[in-house]
Design a protein around this nucleic acid. Sequence first.
DNA 1: AATAACATGGCAACAATTTATCAAGTCTCA
DNA 2: TGAGACTTGATAAATTGTTGCCATGTTATT
Lengths: 334, 334
Amino acid sequence: MATIYQVSELAGVSLATVSRVMNKNTRVSDKTKQKVLDAMEQLGYKPNSIAQSLASNCTNSVGILVSELHGPFFAQMMAGIESELRAAGKHVIITTGHSEEDKEQEGIEFLISRRCDAIILHVEAVSDDYLIKLSEGSTPVYLMSRYVEQLKDNCISLDNQLGGYLATKSILNQGHTQIAYIAGPQFKADAFNRLEGHKQALTEAGVKFDPALYYIGDFNETGGSKALKHFIDEKLSFTALVCANDEMASGAMKYAREHGYNLPNDLSIVGFDNVIFANYLYPTLTTIDNPVGNMGEMAAKLVLKDVYQNKNLVINRFFEPTLMQRDSSAPLIK
Amino acid sequence: MATIYQVSELAGVSLATVSRVMNKNTRVSDKTKQKVLDAMEQLGYKPNSIAQSLASNCTNSVGILVSELHGPFFAQMMAGIESELRAAGKHVIITTGHSEEDKEQEGIEFLISRRCDAIILHVEAVSDDYLIKLSEGSTPVYLMSRYVEQLKDNCISLDNQLGGYLATKSILNQGHTQIAYIAGPQFKADAFNRLEGHKQALTEAGVKFDPALYYIGDFNETGGSKALKHFIDEKLSFTALVCANDEMASGAMKYAREHGYNLPNDLSIVGFDNVIFANYLYPTLTTIDNPVGNMGEMAAKLVLKDVYQNKNLVINRFFEPTLMQRDSSAPLIK
DNA sequence: AATAACATGGCAACAATTTATCAAGTCTCA
DNA sequence: TGAGACTTGATAAATTGTTGCCATGTTATT
């Protein structure tokens, strides 16, 4: 690979001048500039980004930690972050945390040891205190879908409680009062807040939250199937089922169908996230739209603004979910 | 951040000794080793990976280029690659190519300019010649789901033709002979070979390939809907529909249901890839299992073996798809 | 013609490691 | 006690840039 020295030699200019052309700092005459650019072209010169990083103490890379690489939720988030950063010439280093405290910490340390200019985290197992301490270090930390008061300027969050509220409210509005709820793991802030919203809607409607109609799933399809099996095996009476995400809703739908339920007449089901396939289930899944792709883009913009001094970016740290009424939920038939 | 100098000072040993401890090359007495490790611990020393890369000409990073970040197919692939590399202390830099020639080239150049130790590509738009030329450069190139004869040692591929064959064969075995086919974009090798397999199965069964029952979709859900609409609008007669991937199959299923079809009795549908949600559609989708996660792991192993001298890895460059018979396809009712 | 402004060269310091080499010291064992 | 093996230090070169400084040369302005 060609080095800056070879470029300066071929162009017949000094090393400093080549550097000036590259960094657009000081003025260089158009003639000289062209000579240098031609030489670069001819040699196929690409600056060694490793050496640049060492000298400038800036790696042009942003670390991302997500729970899982697969799954439509994280995919949309990463796509949002990547497209925005890529357009600005930055790149992403992606790691996974698997929602386990030690793996999340390990992933974070890994990203920091790679000297990322900033890290964007979707962490679930690590404590608030750890995050606060972490952000006192030299690497700027940004949080997705998690709100920590002391770090509020660096949080991009969704009003999950509102989402949970909207989901249950839509079901209540359809006349249901016997409503089962499949929650996500309660150590995950998203899952906890969605449940809070569910309770809020119930309270508001004067319906008592029934712990028997509450089950904690794992956010996967199988968790949804298991949960519904549990409710049915317990011979509980309910006409609607609210799920903390679409995967569990689809698992529950499958189980319901296999056990003779006619959807949505026998059971109304609502999901959360509005992942792409929610619209291709049968019946199409009523769910809460989670603008996770936009949130990813916004996180990237926030980094570009804070860390890379990209001034003219308008930042919105809060996103609101909306109801997507489809066919899997319907008015209660008396 | 602490440097190696500070460690050597605190430990009271020379710089060379610290380096020896880190790189486990030469023997160092246990006593000295412990002193050094203690000093590192105390200072919270993390080697600067940038400087390491510069000096050792090895970045411990592998570049990955996929078409899209979202979508279950790529997610599973990336998850496979990442988990394997991560376990070996390497990390991944991920970029997208959007199946467009210039974007793919740009992405590749980007990864090379970051001095990745190797790059794993799932490219679709770029030519074979370009790839051959590329692999003559100093960065080792590996190809996923694309077979180029001259680079065969660096290709991890699926027998897509066999997959296409199996899909159509299963439908033929159920007595269908009027079979519509929704293909993927034919410049994509995967899509092309799946179609070849389809034709092969037809020929073998003495059924003529009917161009009228052939439509090129875009590999997305909407493409599947559009294709089926086309067949129906043309008033063509067919009892089965084979799709080149699961997304299009799910789009077609949705359209069929919305237009009064009773699945699978009125129409048998088969997909390809066996993405997770295929099993949660209604009816559950008969499809061809594509072990893309395993293929990702294998690509990572290949890199570990070739580039990082990890000897004891057994490499399998060819994968075979298998039929997943589910409920969306059924014997023809006469 | 004097002065200022601009363009460029040349040089050196710096970033944090790896790698190599040579010399010196320590220890073991016969 | 002396040979040989092992451990460690000291030092320097190499990696590929960035950055800043001062000197020099070239134009433009008044």
